[in-house]
Structures are given as structure tokens and as C-alpha cells.
Nucleic acid binder design. Sequence first.
RNA 1: GCCGGGGUAGCUCAGUCGGUAGAGCAACGCAUUCGUAAUGCGUGGGUCGGGGGUUCGAUUCCCUUCCCCGGCACCA
Length: 641
Amino acid sequence: MPRITLPDGSVRSYPEPVSVFDIAHDIGPGLARAALAAEAGGILVDTSHILSDDTRLRIITERDAEGLEIIRHSCAHLLAQAVKQLFPAAQVTIGPVIEDGFYYDFAFERPFTPEDLERIEARMHELARQDLRISRSVMPRAEALGFFRAAGEEYKAQIIESIPAGESLSLYSQGDFTDLCRGPHVPSTGRIKAFKLTKVAGAYWRGDSKNEMLQRIYGTAWADKKALKEYLHRLEEAEKRDHRRIGRRLDLFHFQPEAPGMVFWHDHGWRVYREIENYVRGQLRRRGYQEVRTPQIIDRSLWEKSGHISKFGDVMFMTRSEERDFAIKPMNCPAHIQIFNQGLKSYRDLPFRMSEFGSCHRNEHSGALHGLLRVRGFTQDDAHIFCTEDQIQAEVAGLIDLVYEVYRDFGFTEVQVRLATRPVKRVGADELWDRAEAALRQALDGNKLDWTLNPGDGAFYGPKIDFSLKDSIGRVWQLGTIQLDFSMPGRLDASYVAADSSRRTPVMIHRAILGSLERFIGVLIEHHAGALPLWLAPVQVVALSLTEKQAGRADAVAETLKNQGVRAESDLRNETISLKIREHTMQRVPYLLVIGAREAEHSTVAVRTRDGVDLGAMSLDGLLERLSREIACRGRGILEG
RNA sequence: GCCGGGGUAGCUCAGUCGGUAGAGCAACGCAUUCGUAAUGCGUGGGUCGGGGGUUCGAUUCCCUUCCCCGGCACCA
């Protein structure tokens, strides 16, 4: 006689075991129609699930986050069913839910074509129309193994073999299709109402590049057609923010085949770059760093000693001259240790903070390159802090503070923080790794950061805290990093004289805030859709003459502003004011000054923002004051009109 | 690097079932002197990514190579 407790606290008793569906129906026919699954005693179950004991029950509908996930998961099964019907030789593997959708990996003799995708999607719609009942059954592991082997599903058999012996497995069937799955699933295929297949791609079996490549089909699924439409619209909008597109449109930079993965910065892009560099210099000055500059090309022997060649060598560019092998530096740390090693250092010199806008080159795989976000030649806002173990907590706390201050100045508030621990390929004793990882954990918790663990993703010389931001279409890019290194200073003979006159090896903290200037600017462009905050805008103000008669005045206005340090230009072309406004607005110039006969006469300018707001006429002094206030705010907030 | 899709004018793209290409915008010229997101008219512009092959003839078909795009793997 189960007593069912609902989320509102009400209790319903039943004389005999009941299904989730029955309870939903008992509560109301509307809920029965909407029910997709349920959470019973903390476990997600199907609506067909029978409850025979007292249980806390929550019915899940498409309004719940879990509901949407279940729809997506069931949609992956629908995809697999359609593929099996159209291409019986294809083998199913896995089909998980991902952000905004799902994918399913198939083993098939040939890649699926875009035309195949259309056929598959049409079949999915057909199967959804048939509203096939989705039923769950349980099978002992051995029997399930036999079932999938008999069906020729070798990959499924492999998956089952990796599940501990003796466990029972659940299978889900819809029409002619049965898949191994933990569930839960929607009650019938008709509940999958809004979906679209988006792309095909190759993907390695079990994510290992040594394994065979499977055919992955991606799709998106939503509770209703409206949500699907909104999602597709969102994708289109995100595409418009693509930094590669904006970079070309705003004449910021370009790439060309002769230098793959390396940026040609144009005048306007380089203005942004320099502005950011200067900003970082200001931070370094305030926080007690020295700035250095080290060679691009350094003899191979140093990289062997540092451990880079063996752990990192396959992405290093090498060059040869007069019988000597050189590496084009992929990192700055060994070079910074060389500077540290000049002259005897005392414990009084620590913490010793050394920074460099370090130009690095890494021979990334061609397939990994991606605009400014993944390049082969880049500049890190790099620094290394040499300190004692006792100083680690204070230094890392200072860095965390710095990271957040800088990100806020650039207008970023959503930052993902991850702790990456020891990788397989590494240098240094496990005992050192234990201490380093513990120190970073302590710093994260001590500074009350919300962080996640990223096991095995540390640098080869030490664990790290990574800071990431999302790009316009949800891809996450790592920017800043704080890395603790107990190994490299020793390998490269760094030492200091301690208070007791003994020689000690310093600990080294590697850190970058923006990461690479290139990547950072890429993310920045996408974040602002090209409309960079005033302090970063390549051109901040353009003075527009209405007719030839105001040319002199417009020029003088631009000149005055330039003398005040504003990046100002004039547009004296014999064109309509509408055209000039249109063009400069599309170039995302923050302020446009219209100068006609009225303004010339009263020594004012009519100010218009790139958002189309008309601020009316004001004096140059008034404008300058507004500009300097806004620049001082950086990316933290936008002034009121 | 792997799988797939691409590369045609400065940009965005169409096209050629093999007979050396077209639009819009941009550029240039002329007219227009204008009040807040496109004034009008006219003109020029392409070794159809590179190399090789098949062919009377290749931008089109085949091979190869480079680069780009989407994933995968990688990402200190």
C-alpha cells in the first residue's frame, strides 16, 4: 500500500502498486499528458515505472531542466532508430545529451553525407509521427551481451563488457529498435516534437585518436518548435559576433596561407593590442613586477634541461644554424630563470616578480587552428614569481585578486575556474605534486572561489588554476592561468641564499592573466560584437562635416581632440550625412560628431552614439569630460545617455 | 594530425551537365553641397587557391598540394 509524497507535501495512498503515469493521471489529466518521467526517491524513472513502496515523487515535464534533457536523450535514440532503418549496416555506439542537444556516434562503412542527414531527419519526423511506445526492459548482463552480439552490434557488446559482471542492464525499445540505455526516456516518440540535425563529423571511438573513427551526427532538440526556432536564431546571431568576420569587417587583422596560425595585425587591430598592453603595464607597475624581454630563439640544450623537449617537443618549432639546433621559444619560463640566475639572490629578494610580453610559437596541429583563439604565434602576458614555499598563499591570493580585477576592467563577469592536477606526462616527484596541488586547493578555498576539478590536465611541471571565458557560441577558451612549479627552478639551477646562509631552490609560480593577447582580443571582440568599449576602440570619435563649408571646423575639432589624447578622425567627404553616419556606425565608432552650420556658428558639436542615441549639441569641453569619464570606467559599465 | 565540407572580383555569394564567368556591395569617375544608418548616373576590375594529368579545349572531370570552415584528437 504505497504512500506517495508529492513536492507540495501532499500524500496520496494507493491500495496496490501504481505506475508514475497512474499517479500523474490521478493528480490531473493535464499532468498525465505532460508527464515525461519522474524523480522517485531521488532517482529518475520512466512514467511506466511501478511504485510499490512509500516514495517521494516529483513528476517531470518539459518545463523541468531534466525534462528537456530526457527529450534530447530520447531524440538521440530516435536518430539511431532512423539510421538503423535507412542504413542497417551501421552499428550504434553511444548517444549522449550535450549542451542544447545531443549526438549519436555510428560505425559505418562510409561517412554520412549532408543528403543522408536530410533523409535521416525526415525518417525521424516520420517515426515521431507514428508515436511509437518506448518501453523499458531489464536483462542480465550476459544475456544483453548475447542480444547485441546476435544483432551484430559489436560496439554495444564492448560497452557491456566494460560494465561490471553480474549487473543487470536496462534496454529501451521503440518499434523495431532496441538500445542499451540507463534511461529514463519519454513515454513515446510522439513526445519529441522539435528537433533538427545540425552537423556530421568524425569522432574517435572512446575518444582516443588511436582508435577507429566513427561517424557522429549532431542534433538539437527542444520542448517545442518555438524554442527550437529561438535556438536557431541565437546561433545565427552568434555567427554575426564571430571575431574572424568582425576582424575583417573592421580591418583589425588578417591571416594568409603563407603564415598559417599567425596574425597580421592591421593598424586598427594593433591599436587595441597596444592599449591592452599599456593597461597591463599599469597593473604590473602597481603590483611590483619588473618587465623583461628574452630571446625568441634559444639553443636546444636549454630546452632539454628544462624538460620541454621530452614533454613538449612535438609542438616546438626547431631551426638549425652552423651545426647548432635551436628552438623557437614556446614558453618564456626557462629564459626568465636565466635572468633570475644572473647575480646572487637573497631571500630578501623574494618574492621576485618578473614579467614579459613574451612572444611564443607553438606548432599546433593544423586542425586545431581557429582565428585568433588558437594560433601558432602569440604573445603571453606572462610572468614568473620566484618565492619561498611560505609565500605561495599570499602570492596566489594576490594573483586571484589581480585576475578578477583585470577581467572586470574588460567587462567580463562570468569566469570559469578550474584546478588542473598532475598529468601522465610530467616531471617532479609525486611528493612535490602532492604539496603543490594542496597549496592551490588551499588558495582556491581560502579565496572562496567557485571551482571545479580538472584531473590530469596540469602542466608537465606543476598543477594549475585555469580561468576560462566563453565565446559567442558557447565554446570555452582558457585565458588566465596560475601554475605552481616545484621542479623547473631546480632543473635550471635557480637558487637563493636563505636567512641561515644555506642555498635554497625557490618555488616558481607561472602566471598569465589574459593568457595570450591574441586569444584575449578574439574573445573580447566576440563579447562586445565588435563594439569595443571607448577606452579600447581603435577610433573613438569621428567629426563629420555636413557640407564643404564646415570642413575646416570639423578638421579643427578632430585636431583638438587628438591633442587631448583622443583617437579622433574627421570625415570631410562630399557625401550625405546619412551615409557618413551609417559607415562609421558600422565601423562601431563610439561617438560621431555632426558639424553643420549651426554647430560651426556656436562652436559646438552634435553628438551621436554608435547605438543611435542623439545626445544633442554640446561644447568640446563637455564632450571631453564625458569621454574621459567613460574611459576611466573602462569596460565596467556604460554611462547613461 | 584524423573525418567531412569548402576555396570564383576587395567583401558576400551565384554559375558553368567541359567551349576561358556574373550579381549586390565596395573601388574609381562625373554630377550633387545635402541635418542623423545607403543621392544619382557611369566606368574599370577575375591566370575561378597552387601544381600535375585527361582532352581539340579544364574554372568545370581526375590526382596531388596548400589554406579555410565544422567536429574529433590535442591544447604547457
